[in-house]
Amino acid sequence: MRKGAVVFRDYLTELPLIAILRGLKPDEAETVGLVLAEAGFRIIEVPLNSPDPFRSIEILAKKLPAEVLVGAGTVLEPAMVDGVHDVGGKLIVMPHADPEVIRRAKEQRLYCTPGVATPTEAFAALKAGADAIKIFPAEAIPPAVVKAWRAVLPRETLVLPVGGIKPDTMKGYVDAGANGFGLGSALFSPGLSVEEIGRNARAFASAWRDLRRG
């Protein structure tokens, strides 16, 4: 990661894959976080509808290497932003594009990636201060649509499809202009062993690197 002021884009440089740990429990947070960091992941989010999510975020923020960005997903209200900030989280990920939540994240100097499903929402989110846009749900927004969005969005916009992404479905989105992905149940789901999570993480990392070499 480059020296000087760190921007959200810097965390996407080596491996632009966001680990979404929905259902993570605090007692497994450190172990799961470390296996993801070892696989090269530099962004981890714990959705706030997980068990005791603020405790998990606090553990991850304290125990993982400084170069790993830790934050929350499924952030629905401005007050939730304050809770994430208070436990050391630095990233706000949303399923929607509520400008009040985005503005609160920026007031707290947190990175913010709102979810959008139309160009109208994307432009409104960027105007409110979003650091990137989360195309959600990606299952309903195929690469051809992402390519059309790319033609009108500001060139520097970071575009991250989320929802149903697997190692073998990334290429179409990358060809259409995606900058990275949010990864859910194909990477982590409650009940998976640490070994299984590690294998999934390495498979995604390998698939991404193969795309870059191609």
Rank of each mutant, 00 (worst) to 15 (best):
A5P: 11
A5Q: 11
R9N: 08
Y11A: 09
L17I: 12
L21K: 05
R22N: 07
G23S: 07
G23R: 12
L24P: 15
K25A: 14
D27Q: 14
A29M: 12
E30K: 14
E30C: 10
V32M: 07
L34K: 11
V35W: 00
R42Q: 13
E45C: 10
L48D: 09
N49G: 05
F54R: 11
I57G: 13
L60M: 03
P65Q: 02
P65K: 07
A66Y: 04
V68M: 12
L69G: 07
V70G: 09
V70D: 01
V70Q: 08
V75W: 01
E77C: 12
P78I: 00
V81N: 00
V84I: 08
H85K: 13
V87M: 12
G89D: 04
K90N: 03
I92C: 04
M94Y: 06
P95D: 00
H96N: 07
V101C: 02
R103F: 09
K106Y: 00
R109Q: 09
R109P: 03
L110A: 09
L110T: 01
P114A: 05
P114V: 04
T118E: 10
A122D: 00
A122K: 03
L126H: 01
G129Y: 05
D131A: 07
A132H: 07
K134P: 15
F136C: 09
A138M: 14
E139A: 15
E139G: 13
V145E: 04
V146E: 02
W149Y: 15
W149M: 14
V152Y: 00
L153V: 04
L153S: 07
R155A: 12
E156C: 08
E156F: 08
E156M: 11
T157M: 13
V159C: 10
V162A: 14
G164S: 05
K166P: 11
K166C: 09
P167M: 02
T169K: 08
T169P: 12
G182P: 12
S185L: 12
A186V: 05
A186G: 15
S189M: 10
S193A: 07
R199N: 10
R199Y: 08
R202Q: 09
D210T: 10
